[in-house]
Structure formats: structure tokens, C-alpha cells
Amino acid sequence: AEAVLKIREALPVRLHLILPCKGQSDRWHFAEKRRYREILKQADTADFLFERYTPDCMLRRDDAMVARSGYCVCYLRDPAAKRGGTAYTVRRAKKEGLEVIHLIPVEVEQLTLL
């Protein structure tokens, strides 16, 4: 989300958030809550899938992101990873035929120079 916010002035991109549940950040530390709220304020849209946490809400969020996307833009340190939410989402995106674009911090910094 922060990478999109950083480059959207230079590139024609929008930030649409699909969030697993309301109250997602309730147990986070203050600084992370503030960061989350700032991202929410700057997003073009934000949709919550569930009113409250459920055991599978994170995976359902990942599925919804793939279903509503034309591309998969991600930070995935190990493209061969078998575990974790990002790895799961990238596998789903590939299975659905989406182009996967792996970002690294250097690329994001370069994009802001456009």
C-alpha cells in the first residue's frame, strides 16, 4: 500500500484496499495503528470483507484481492516460498493467469524519480 501511495503521483495507479475485517488493527502497537489509519485515509477505496475476525478471513481477503485484480504487484522476498500470505496470494494469482510483478525497494525509489 505504501509503495502505491509513493508512486501514484507519477504513475496512473490507484489504491484499492481489500481488508479482512473491521478491527484488524485493534491489538497492534500505537505506531502501527497510526500508520494503518494514514494508509486508510489516503486509499481510493477500502472494503472490509467481514465485520469481525474469523479464522479464515485473511485467506478470504487474499482470494478476494486476486479475484478483483488485473495484476499481482507484490513484495515477495523468496519467489519459491511455500508458506505465508504473500506466497499464497502469488500462487493464486499465477493460477488465475495474472501477471505477477515483484517489487523491490530500489525499484520503488526509482519510480518516484519519474
Score class of each variant (00 low, 15 high):
Arg37Val: 13
Arg77Ile: 00
Pro105Asp: 04
Ile18Ala: 07
Gly97Arg: 01
Pro105Ala: 01
Tyr75Cys: 06
Arg83Thr: 06
Cys74Met: 12
Arg34Ile: 15
Asp47Thr: 15
Pro55Phe: 12
Ile7Asp: 13
Lys22Ile: 01
Asp56Met: 01
Cys74Tyr: 10
Val106Trp: 08
Leu15Phe: 02
Lys94Val: 10
Ala80Asn: 14
Thr54Lys: 11
Val100Lys: 10
Asp47Arg: 03
Arg35Met: 09
Arg92Ser: 03
Lys41Leu: 14
Ala67Asp: 10
Arg60Pro: 12
Val100Gln: 07
Ala81Ile: 14
Ala93Ser: 02
Arg92Ile: 06
Cys57Gln: 06
Ser25Glu: 15
Glu2Trp: 14
His102Val: 11
Val13Met: 11
Arg91Ser: 00
Gln42Val: 04
Ser25Gly: 14
Phe48Asp: 04
Pro20Gln: 04
Ile18Thr: 09
Tyr36Ser: 05
Val66Ile: 09
Ala3Tyr: 01
Asp26Ala: 15
Asp62Gln: 06
Glu109Lys: 01
Val108Tyr: 06
Ala31Met: 00
Arg52Tyr: 06
Glu51Ser: 12
Ile7Asn: 06
Ala64Glu: 10
Ile101Thr: 04
Leu11Cys: 10
Thr89Ser: 10
Val66Cys: 07
Pro55Leu: 15
Ile39Glu: 07
Lys41Arg: 14
Gly23Glu: 05
Cys74Val: 12
Thr112Arg: 08
Glu107Ser: 05
Arg52Phe: 11
Val100Arg: 03
Leu103Ser: 03
Pro79Phe: 01
Ile18Met: 05
Asp62Lys: 05
Leu111Gly: 05
Gln110Leu: 14
Pro105Ser: 07
Gly70Phe: 00
Thr89Arg: 07
Arg27Cys: 09
Leu5Arg: 02
Arg35Thr: 01
Met65Asn: 06
His16Glu: 11
Thr86Tyr: 07
Asp26His: 00
Ala10His: 08
Pro55Arg: 14
Lys95Asn: 10
Val13Ser: 13
Leu98Trp: 12
Ala1His: 02
Gln42Ser: 09
Pro105Met: 05
Ala64Asn: 03
Leu5Lys: 00
Asp44Val: 06
Arg61Ala: 14
Trp28Met: 12
Glu109Pro: 08
Ser25Thr: 12
Val4Asn: 01
Ala3Trp: 13
Leu76Asp: 09
Trp28Glu: 13
His102Leu: 12
Arg14Val: 06
Pro55Tyr: 14
Glu51Cys: 08
Asp26Trp: 06
Pro12Cys: 00
Gly23Cys: 00
Lys41Asp: 15
Leu59Thr: 09
Leu49Tyr: 10
Glu38Thr: 11
Val73Cys: 06
Asp63Ser: 04
Ile104Glu: 15
Phe30Cys: 07
